[in-house]
């Protein structure tokens, strides 16, 4: 090994080490405030400042979570099933929403006339909480997955649709002109300009859509689930005044929501929009 190469690999090692260290430091920085909150909470309950049958201490919630995770326990052990069911419902509703909203969004965004007709309707439906449809869907489909997934779909579809339309409409005439003057046909314009130019708006639409699906899910499950799902678990626990189980559900909803954002959208953004934005985001990266 020449000294140069040795030096290079030492440098590389140093950089990898630094990257790992940086990552660990960021994780600690993120977890520290949460740990602090939990400590204060635990202390407050133990000191008798809070009623433990309304606000159970974190240690009680963790103990209940362990019970609920124990698959061998015939009475409990349902937590993983609840999580799986909820994820299945939310993700399939989101997938349907994306499959419908993106093509429709391009269609509406590209045609001025259609857009003028449809956009008032969308503006009306966009702020409407999708849960409001649940009773109607219950009448139509009864309790169960169809109703829940449809409600979540309605929650997710409008943000994605709206963002896609806005993205398509924000593409400047000039950027289309640039490729037209290079001899581009419609396919080129679509693939090389419309699609990538829409991506940033689309990305925030997808995030919003998924978040809406996840939020809507809980309410829909409380109203329409037969036997499983995190919303169902939380709601069912009220019959036994089982507050720790409710907290387990709430924590699961928060953590899973965050993990979806982190493992679905952050990599997606890193591979696309974040790369182009370059230096602008160096300081603001999470």
């Amino acid at each position: 090994m020449t000294p140069d190469v040795a030096e290079g690999s030492a440098l590389l090692k140093e950089r990898v080490t630094f990257a790992l260290f940086d990552r660990a430091a960021r994780t600690v920085k993120f977890l520290l405030p949460i740990a602090a909150l939990l400590l204060v909470w635990e202390g407050a309950v133990r000191a008798g400042l809070a009623e433990s049958n309304i606000l159970p201490a974190p240690s009680m919630v963790i103990a209940r979570a362990i019970e609920l995770l124990d698959v061998t326990n015939p009475a409990g052990g349902m937590l993983l099933t609840h999580i799986a069911t909820s994820l299945y419902r939310a993700l399939s509703a989101f997938a349907f929403a994306v499959l419908v909203a993106i093509p429709l969004g391009f269609l509406l965004g590209l045609s001025g006339t259609v857009y003028r007709w449809v956009s008032p309707v969308i503006s009306l439906l966009l702020p409407l909480p999708a849960v409001a449809w649940t009773p109607i869907l219950l009448v139509a489909f009864g309790q169960g997955d169809v109703t829940i997934i449809t409600v979540c779909f309605l929650g997710a579809v409008f943000p994605v649709l709206y963002s896609t339309i806005q993205g398509v409409r924000s593409v400047s005439r000039q950027s289309v002109w640039v490729v037209r003057s290079m001899g581009a046909n419609f396919g080129d314009i679509f693939v090389r300009v419309m699609l990538p130019a829409t991506l940033p708006a689309l990305m925030s639409g997808l995030k919003l859509g998924m978040a809406h699906a996840w939020r809507t899910l809980v309410a829909a499950e409380m109203l329409a689930a037969l036997s499983s799902g995190l919303g169902y678990m939380i709601f069912a626990a009220r019959s036994y005044m089982d507050v720790p189980t409710m907290f387990v559900g709430i924590v699961c909803l928060a953590v899973i929501g965050m993990l979806i954002e982190h493992f679905l959208f952050v990599p997606l953004e890193n591979a696309t929009t974040r790369k182009w934005e370059g230096a602008i985001h160096v300081g603001g990266r999470r």
């Binding site: 400047s172 000039q174 950027s175 002109w177 640039v178 003057s181 290079m182 090389r192 300009v193 990538p196 130019a197 991506l199 696309t272 929009t273 182009w276 934005e277």
Partner: peptide, 13 residues
């Protein structure tokens, strides 16, 4: 006919 626009119009991606 090639055009150079006053506003550049580059593709950020």
């Amino acid at each position: 006919r090639g055009v150079v626009f006053q506003e550049f119009v580059l593709f950020p991606w």
